[in-house]
């Protein structure tokens, strides 16, 4: 029983990190209808920039601030030079644009910082600690705490601020938002900056866990089953979806894994998402279309 609990908690904790990556997608998808494929590249760029600065003896906090600044600038530039000129284009065009963008960002990272693998040490032990009779990884706990705080901050921002209200209005009905005088470019800028910050935080957390290397940009692929489960347009869905995938993955690894000779963690989430997709195409929390004529 304790063992089950231990696996479950471990899964939920890594699930929070999935949630965070998924939220980066949801933010942009909700407001501009773009599935931002470049999210992974942004994440990689953030982690790589941070780690390279730290390796060059830049103090931790300064490196964090500089990376944050870079992410903001990138967010602004993407909105201004890629998405704004493509406004009112079909979604597939926008998706292709972000696909191209991801290669540009990855290329720029490589040019700037080289291609070698870096270790990222956030100063947190991975040693397990004991709580209530079960062992939990200290790093997982820390990462989940940070990711959770980030998610909470975003939710509060969208619920409590005027920009947050404008964001939700744009997400709900873009034409209506335009008609009441909401400045869409401003909302988009805010969203891209937020997505950049999310990329930074998740880049550092994932980078610390997996090492900072080019395959880090593939972490976003892990967000896809989460999005399928939670719905592409729901922040709450991204949170719950991340937790479910994280927990299901770990439980499956431990309890069904042996039947397949182990190693199912890599693909279990995708199969689960596929199965789920067949039952509920709009996700757990996807837009219930409330519409009246």
């Amino acid at each position: 029983m304790d063992f089950l609990l231990e696996v479950l908690v471990g899964g939920l904790l890594s699930g929070v990190m999935y949630s965070l990556v998924a939220i980066g997608f949801v933010l942009i998808y909700k407001t501009s209808g773009v599935l931002n494929f470049a999210q992974g590249a942004q994440l990689l760029f953030a982690a790589l920039t941070f780690v390279s600065l730290v390796e060059r003896e830049v103090p931790f906090v300064a490196a964090l601030a500089i990376t944050l600044g870079a992410m903001v600038v990138i967010g602004l530039a993407i909105e201004r030079f890629v998405l704004r000129p493509l406004v009112n284009q079909p979604p597939i065009t926008l998706f292709m644009a972000t696909l191209g963008l991801s290669y540009v960002i990855e290329g720029a990272s490589q040019l700037l910082w080289g291609a070698q693998v870096h270790g990222l040490d956030l100063g947190i032990d991975d040693a397990p600690i004991e709580a209530a009779g079960i062992f939990i990884s200290q790093f997982d706990l820390f990462a989940a705490g940070i990711a959770g705080a980030m998610v909470l901050a975003l939710v509060l921002f969208f619920r409590k601020t005027r920009t947050g209200l404008a964001f939700r209005a744009v997400a709900d009905d873009q034409v209506a938002a335009l008609s009441v005088g909401i400045r869409l470019p401003r909302v988009w800028v805010a969203v891209w900056i937020a997505a950049g910050v999310v990329a930074l935080v998740s880049g550092l957390l994932w980078g610390a866990r997996l090492g900072v290397q080019f395959s880090l940009s593939l972490v976003v692929l892990k967000a896809l089953p989460v999005l399928v489960l939670g719905g592409f347009d729901s922040v709450a869905g991204a949170i719950v979806g991340g937790l479910l995938i994280g927990a299901a993955e770990k439980l499956a690894e431990v309890y069904i894994g042996p039947l397949f000779g182990g190693g199912i963690e890599g693909w279990f989430a995708y199969v689960a998402a596929l199965a789920f997709l067949l039952v509920r195409p709009s996700g757990l929390f996807g837009q219930k279309l409330v519409e009246r004529v």
Binding site: R162, L165, A169, V180, E291
Partner: peptide, 27 residues
């Protein structure tokens, strides 16, 4: 300002939030 054909309220915002959204430009 225009009131669009088919009203175009924000369906997932509350009635009051819909009203507040109309004043976003006035801060």
């Amino acid at each position: 300002i225009q009131v669009l054909e088919g009203r175009h309220c924000f369906p997932q915002l509350t009635v009051e939030e819909n009203l507040i959204s109309g004043a976003v430009s006035r801060r």
